[in-house]
Design a protein around this nucleic acid. Structure first.
Lengths: 98, 98
DNA sequence: ATCTCATATGAAAAATAAATCATATAACTT
DNA sequence: AAGTTATATGATTTATTTTTCATATGAGAT
C-alpha cells in the first residue's frame, strides 16, 4: 500500500497556489478578484484553481457567470500555523517567514 | 514582506524526501540504512538529506564515520496527521492515503 | 440569436527541480 | 601513511511542473 500524501503538499509547495490560498484566507473570492489581487494571468489562475479544487483545498460555487472560490480552512489554516511555528523556532526570520 | 512558507512544503511534496521522512518516523537512521531501506542511490539520498537538514526537517549527528539522521517530529508528525484527516474526509481512500 | 463577460481547457513552450555520475572528503583501520 | 568505508558535493543530464497562448464554453444581457 503506497503512500501518496506528498501529492497534497504539492499544492502548498507552489508559489502561485500558495498565494491563492493566502488570498482566500480572509474571504472567498471570484476568479476575477483573485486575478486582480495577485496581478496574474487568467488562465494561470484557472489552471491552478483547478488542481486546488481537485484536492479539496478549495471549494467552488457558481453565482451567475462567476465562480466563487472558498478556502478549506480546516486543513490549511492549522498547517500554515505549523510552518509559522517551525519558522519561528528554527529560521530566526530568515526562511519561511511571512 | 514576502511569504516564503511554500518553500517548506517543497520537501514534503517530493516523493524521495517524503519516503525518507516516513522511514525516519520510527527511529533515527544512518545514510546507509536509509539507502538500504528505500533501495535508492547514495548520492540521491545525500542530496535529499541535505535540503531536509537545511530546512530543519531532520537533524544530523556524527557517530564515527556515520551520520545519523533524526526526524523533527514536532513539526512533521502533526502535519502528516492533518493530511491523513483531510484524506479520510475528502478522498475516500483514493488520493492521499498511506 | 447574437454579444459580451467570466472562466475553463488543451497543447506547446518555458522554467524548475530532481537524479545521475564522477569525484571529493573525512574518519577509522591496518 | 595507505586503504577502506561512509557520506557529501558539483556539474550535467533528465524529468517534472508551470506558464503561456489560443481557443472553447457557458451564463446573462441586448
Amino acid at each position: 500500500m503506497k503512500n501518496k500524501s506528498y501529492n497534497f503538499f504539492t499544492h502548498l509547495a507552489n508559489p502561485t497556489k500558495f498565494k491563492i490560498i493566502m488570498a482566500l484566507r480572509e474571504k472567498e473570492l471570484s476568479v476575477t478578484e483573485i486575478i486582480t489581487e495577485l496581478k496574474e494571468e487568467q488562465s494561470k489562475i484557472s489552471h491552478n484553481l483547478k488542481s486546488l479544487t481537485q484536492c479539496h483545498i478549495v471549494e467552488v460555487k457558481r453565482v451567475g457567470k462567476k465562480r466563487i472560490y472558498e478556502l478549506n480552512k480546516d486543513t490549511i489554516l492549522p498547517m500554515i500555523e505549523l510552518v509559522k511555528k517551525h519558522a519561528r523556532k528554527y529560521c530566526l526570520g530568515k526562511c519561511h517567514k511571512d
